[in-house]
Design a protein around this nucleic acid. Sequence first.
DNA 1: AACTAAACGAGACGGTACGTCCAGTCTTTAA
DNA 2: TTAAAGACTGGACGTACCGTCTCGTTTAGTT
Lengths: 195, 195, 195, 195
Amino acid sequence: MVKAKIGRPRSEKSQEAIINATHDLLNEKRGAGLTIEAIARRAKVGKPTIYRWWPSLADIVLEVVLRQADTSITVSSFESLRETLRQFLRQSMKAIVDWGGVHLRFLLAHAQKDEEFRERFREKFVAKRRTVLNSIFLQAMQRGQIDSEQNLELVADIVFGAMWYRLLIGHASLDESFADELTEVIIRLVQAGPA
Amino acid sequence: MVKAKIGRPRSEKSQEAIINATHDLLNEKRGAGLTIEAIARRAKVGKPTIYRWWPSLADIVLEVVLRQADTSITVSSFESLRETLRQFLRQSMKAIVDWGGVHLRFLLAHAQKDEEFRERFREKFVAKRRTVLNSIFLQAMQRGQIDSEQNLELVADIVFGAMWYRLLIGHASLDESFADELTEVIIRLVQAGPA
Amino acid sequence: MVKAKIGRPRSEKSQEAIINATHDLLNEKRGAGLTIEAIARRAKVGKPTIYRWWPSLADIVLEVVLRQADTSITVSSFESLRETLRQFLRQSMKAIVDWGGVHLRFLLAHAQKDEEFRERFREKFVAKRRTVLNSIFLQAMQRGQIDSEQNLELVADIVFGAMWYRLLIGHASLDESFADELTEVIIRLVQAGPA
Amino acid sequence: MVKAKIGRPRSEKSQEAIINATHDLLNEKRGAGLTIEAIARRAKVGKPTIYRWWPSLADIVLEVVLRQADTSITVSSFESLRETLRQFLRQSMKAIVDWGGVHLRFLLAHAQKDEEFRERFREKFVAKRRTVLNSIFLQAMQRGQIDSEQNLELVADIVFGAMWYRLLIGHASLDESFADELTEVIIRLVQAGPA
DNA sequence: AACTAAACGAGACGGTACGTCCAGTCTTTAA
DNA sequence: TTAAAGACTGGACGTACCGTCTCGTTTAGTT
């Protein structure tokens, strides 16, 4: 049964304004100055309107990221494991550097203070990224390019861990050479052990 | 020339009280409720006294962590690379789980919002941990257990990245089996490639 | 065009609580201990609520005084200048002694430190009191009891100056005999010069 | 019994520096920014040195005023009451306008918050000024220019009240015409009543 | 000439209040 | 009858001063 639609309808315009304001504020001062109040001011919207649709500030940012990520993830046709992996890593890092570094760091920071958001973040973002990597591994496995006894969960921890670590600590950049080196490491790990 | 020491000297008692209050508050509600005001109240100290000696809340937590870390880091006598590495990882993870997880997550979160603190965090904590790992690798290299062509910086990113990633995302635990599996992976990476 | 009234309206209850708390605190310790924080605590109100509606502590006190003054000023029917003036002065001094001495001294003190408040104080309080006195003089003038060449502004300075001076310096009391003596002096001043 | 004078004697240089710093700070921003800390900074003096010799900030200002007043009060040879009074009032107002308005307003304001200082202020400053006026009246009385039945205390309240009132409220200036008008009023009051 | 004690500068201390920002809730009007 | 908007309570922020304290450092007068 369809729920009767009564009352004033949700304003799509407001939602867009909120998302855009959030994105803009994030880019303006590296994430400083991103508060619910600032978003409300910028989007010319009342604070309760924001609270009605998102449980926390981080969830708005998460939606901003997901909207972008959905359009930017492109899994090319599988050639070799090495090539596909390299593309995946290069693409991921480029996206972070060009667009989403501030967003991701903001999300990660808030996930540390809000247990419930951390779970949502895990489900909606982290898990999806791991799924993409996993699908690459699965394809490689079907082609026999991976030793099936490997612990692919651990490998995923290593891949994403290294990227997040560099992003969060900031001691080194997420450039192509890092993507390539990481690719080689992973290749070595998933291939059959010392014969 | 040594700066003349004039004026009332710094109160050691207050500093201890601040450090202890910070540690207690972190453990009490998983880091929620850790504010400068709360520390001042708990430590029976004026807020300016805190601001006089630490530039931010995160720096107090950093000092708490460093004081503990200094006493807990023990590099045992080097037996084999595998054994030493395993001990190092098990010890690190145990310390995180038993004692410092909340602290580290708090530090990492604040490092995302405060660029200057991030640098201090890198220098005073991250770099030190990397140095310990590096000294292990150096000893192994002197014994010829490591292929000297390996990119040890990348390996360090992988080791610490994987640990931080699990801590921050919280999808899996930092237990002994993870330490052991990670050890095996690292061993494989630093040993000579497929001849 | 009338500004659209949307949003939660100003809480009358809060305003009352703030006014009452201010009044009580003034009476409790002769004005010491009257701070914005104390008012907020006593009135169970957030500090920003206070700052939203009053630019300074002194302005709250001014409103307290004005609310009281509006109800206490009673200009009786004009009999003779002497009688009306005596009533006015006795009434004014009684109000100061019984009720508003602390308030007025507080207002005067703050007016010395805040130029903008001094202006508001002048307009909202001082000017009104002078207007009352002036209306008395005007009525007397219509009855020919005052030499029209007198400088009534100067006379007003003398009347209010003498009262304020005694209140602020505290060397003598504002009692009925002072009111009566001052009345006689003023009568002599405003009547025709040496015949 | 005389207390034995041992130990380092009071530093005259510091006292001068404190007095000068106070005077300068009062003139710089109309009294705003005059704090014990600021004086200590400016005079290159420790705060305890200030507290050792003066019980409050206002007492320092009082000393500044007294030092100046002692050198500026000049009672000219008595000619007529009118002339002497006019000189006294003009001189007083000129001193206030040119030099001490900020000081006096500061003193008066603090006297409202500190009962004990108010007493000191009354004794050391107010009483002295009244004494000067009184000596003028006494001389006039000896010459028979004043009706001996007049209440000279009330007249003094009127004279000083009118001046303070204009200074504190700021609705009109303390210029020569005010001095002259006030002189005429006082003359009329102290002379014999309507025969 | 060495000793003694008070006053000195410097500045850290525990506190209080400041005025601001933001969080999250409540209450009214608009659609 | 729900959405929107603004005022609300409340907590923490970082700063300025307060008045007190504890130092090491002069600077006389006393031995």
